Simulated assay, not measured.
Amino acid sequence: MADNRNQLVVPQARAALEQLKFEVAQELGIAIPQDGYYGNMLTRDTGRIGGEITRRLVQMAEQQLAGRQ
């Protein structure tokens, strides 16, 4: 079976993205499993975390683009 995980364009960003995930989860009051297995988490919770991460990454990109003009 093929590994279909998303590959990072910038692999060095992995640690920063992991840190962002933990920060967002903490702010939302969602506990991240210590063992790294997300299968027992509610889909709603993982979606909230992912949605907030996406909002923040878009905001960062917009700020960078605005700074170039």
Score class of each variant (00 low, 15 high):
Met1Val: 11
Met1Phe: 13
Met1Gly: 14
Ala2Met: 13
Arg5Ser: 14
Asn6Lys: 13
Asn6Trp: 10
Gln7Asp: 11
Gln7Thr: 15
Gln7Cys: 08
Leu8Thr: 09
Leu8Ser: 08
Val9Cys: 05
Val9Leu: 10
Val9His: 07
Val9Ile: 12
Val10Leu: 13
Pro11Phe: 02
Pro11Gln: 06
Pro11Gly: 06
Pro11Ala: 06
Pro11Asn: 07
Gln12Lys: 12
Ala13Gly: 02
Ala13Arg: 05
Ala13His: 05
Arg14Tyr: 02
Arg14Pro: 01
Ala15Pro: 05
Ala15Gly: 10
Leu17Gly: 11
Leu17Tyr: 12
Leu17His: 11
Leu17Cys: 07
Leu17Val: 04
Glu18Gln: 14
Gln19Asn: 10
Gln19Val: 06
Leu20Lys: 15
Leu20His: 11
Lys21Cys: 09
Lys21Ala: 07
Phe22Lys: 09
Phe22Leu: 11
Phe22Ala: 11
Val24Pro: 01
Val24Gly: 03
Val24Glu: 04
Ala25Phe: 02
Gln26Asp: 15
Gln26Met: 09
Gln26Arg: 14
Glu27Gln: 14
Leu28Pro: 04
Leu28Thr: 04
Gly29Glu: 04
Ile30Ala: 01
Ile30Tyr: 00
Ala31Cys: 00
Ala31Asn: 00
Ile32Met: 12
Pro33Ser: 08
Gln34Leu: 03
Gln34Gly: 02
Gln34Ile: 02
Asp35Phe: 01
Asp35His: 02
Gly36Ser: 10
Gly36Cys: 11
Tyr37Ser: 06
Tyr37Phe: 13
Tyr37Thr: 07
Tyr38Val: 13
Tyr38Leu: 15
Tyr38Gln: 12
Gly39His: 02
Gly39Asp: 07
Asn40Pro: 04
Met41Val: 00
Met41Asp: 00
Met41Trp: 01
Leu42Arg: 09
Leu42His: 06
Leu42Lys: 06
Leu42Val: 02
Thr43Tyr: 12
Thr43Asn: 12
Arg44Asn: 13
Asp45Gln: 06
Asp45Tyr: 01
Thr46Phe: 02
Gly47Cys: 10
Arg48Pro: 04
Arg48Glu: 08
Arg48Trp: 08
Ile49Asp: 00
Ile49Asn: 01
Ile49Gly: 01
Gly50Asn: 09
Gly50Glu: 04
Gly50Arg: 05
Gly50Asp: 03
Gly51Asn: 11
Gly51Glu: 06
Gly51Tyr: 07
Gly51Met: 07
Gly51Gln: 08
Gly51Ile: 04
Glu52Gly: 03
Glu52Met: 12
Glu52Thr: 13
Glu52Pro: 02
Thr54Gln: 07
Val58Arg: 11
Gln59Glu: 08
Gln59Trp: 06
Met60Asn: 03
Met60Arg: 09
Met60Gly: 01
Ala61Val: 12
Glu62Asn: 13
Gln63His: 13
Gln64Thr: 11
Gln64Trp: 14
Gln64Ser: 12
Leu65Val: 05
Leu65Cys: 06
Leu65Arg: 14
Ala66Lys: 15
Ala66Met: 13
Ala66Cys: 08
Ala66Pro: 01
Gly67Ile: 09
Gly67Tyr: 08
Arg68Pro: 01
Gln69Thr: 08
Gln69Asn: 13
Gln69Val: 09
Gln69Lys: 14
Gln69Arg: 15
Gln69Tyr: 09
